[in-house]
Design a protein around this nucleic acid. Structure first.
Lengths: 104, 104
DNA sequence: TTCGATGTTCGTCAAACATCGAACAAGGTA
DNA sequence: TACCTTGTTCGATGTTTGACGAACATCGAA
């Protein structure tokens, strides 16, 4: 989990949107995440986030759940995530990524 | 000056090193900046930083001076630069970029 | 066991990126 | 004018990235 990898992972609007959606700390099922890309592309972005250490993924049967590693991030790079989230919010980056709160 | 562009510009160790070197707020001459790349490559990295809005460049005769736009960055993305600099320092990212404080 | 749902992986493609050396432009200086 | 210094721009090259559809693997349910 390196700084450059984290910043690189955050240099894409879709991934910023995913992080924003996960920023409330709740674990989300894959199926709840909606972004305007093909599912293989979404899988790719989620892999980039995981490889950079931003998220944690849990497999349960055939379903996958993803969660932001906020504690680890805050410990390793204090303040970074918060300032990125603030900036993303005020610039409305990644707004086309959303989550359906209901079922998995 | 967008968030994604700034994060993208910072997702390269050499550019992080350049930002670190400029973080004291002093304007630096091109000739003071030393990085383990060809001069055309260094020129490219400095252009990326400028295009992303991280630096300001001033031409004086045949020399070039570069300066970090810290005020603008802090106004636009509060806390971001500081947390990146802290992280870069603790991880020693971009340490192979240095500055010769003496001549132009 | 067959089917459907859920993600991953693969093959492919175009665009972007990092890098280099060489050529170029512009400003001083001899 | 000729030359040197400084930095930019220009191909060329190889790598990485983002994207897609299709094929695959896996699990649960019918």
């Amino acid at each position: 989990m390196t700084l450059v990898a984290v910043l690189g992972a955050l240099s894409d609007p879709i991934r910023v949107g995913l992080v924003r959606v996960l920023a409330d700390g709740r674990e989300r099922g894959w199926g709840q995440l909606h972004a305007p890309v093909a599912k293989s592309t979404l899988s790719h972005h989620l892999r980039v986030l995981r490889d950079a250490g931003l998220t944690r993924t849990r497999q349960e049967g055939t379903r996958c759940f993803v969660e932001l590693r906020r504690d680890d991030l805050d410990a390793r790079f204090p303040g970074l995530l918060d300032s990125v989230l603030d900036a993303a919010h005020s610039d409305d980056i990644g707004a086309h990524v959303h989550v359906s709160d209901s079922p998995a």
